[in-house]
Computed example of a mutant assay.
Amino acid sequence: MAERQINPFLKSALEFGPVLGFFVAYLLLKDESFLIAGRAYEGFIVVTAGFIPVMLACTGLLWRLTGHLSRMQIVTAVLIVVFGGLSVWLNDERFFKMKPTLIYLLFGTALLAGLLRGESWLRSVMEGMMPLQHDGWMILTKRVTAFFFGLALLNEIVWRTLSTETWVYFKTFGLPAGVFVFFLLQSGLFKRYALEAEPGAPE
Rank of each mutant, 00 (worst) to 15 (best):
A37C: 02
M98E: 04
P53A: 02
L153G: 06
L184D: 13
A25C: 14
D92T: 07
L61T: 03
L35C: 10
L56W: 07
G108Y: 01
H68M: 09
F173I: 14
L153V: 13
K30A: 03
A110W: 12
E119K: 11
G150F: 08
L102I: 11
L14T: 09
K142Y: 04
Y104W: 05
V179G: 15
N7R: 05
L69M: 07
E165K: 06
T66Q: 07
V158P: 02
G178K: 10
V144L: 13
V88T: 01
I80F: 05
G118C: 04
R143E: 01
L184A: 14
P131I: 04
L79V: 11
I157N: 07
L154H: 01
E3F: 05
F23W: 04
G84I: 00
A113S: 05
I52T: 02
E198L: 11
F95Y: 04
S12P: 06
V81W: 03
R4Q: 14
G84L: 00
E15P: 11
H134D: 15
V75D: 05
D31E: 13
A2C: 09
R94V: 04
G174P: 06
L162M: 13
I6P: 07
L189D: 09
W121V: 10
L132F: 00
W121Y: 15
R123W: 07
R117C: 11
L111S: 01
L154Q: 06
L195E: 13
K99W: 00
L185K: 12
L140F: 10
W167G: 03
N91T: 09
W121C: 09
I157H: 05
F180N: 10
L112E: 08
T166I: 11
E93S: 09
A13Y: 12
L62S: 15
E93T: 08
E15L: 13
V24G: 07
F148E: 08
Q186Y: 08
M72N: 11
E156T: 14
F182H: 09
L20T: 10
F22S: 00
F182T: 15
W121K: 11
L20M: 12
G21I: 03
F44G: 01
P53Y: 01
F107P: 04
R71M: 10
H68R: 11
S87M: 01
G150K: 05
L116D: 05
R39L: 03
V168K: 02
L29K: 04
K30G: 12
K191H: 12
G200P: 10
F180R: 12
L35I: 09
W89L: 13
V168H: 00
T109M: 08
A113R: 09
F149R: 03
L79R: 02
W159K: 08
F51R: 02
R123Q: 15
P18R: 02
L90D: 09
F16R: 04
P199M: 05
M126V: 12
T66R: 12
W121G: 08
T48E: 03
F147G: 07
F9W: 15
P131V: 09
P199T: 09
A2H: 13
S12K: 15
S87G: 07
V82I: 14
I45Y: 00
L184F: 11
A201T: 14
C58Q: 10
G174C: 00
L29T: 12
R71V: 14
R4H: 11
G108Q: 03
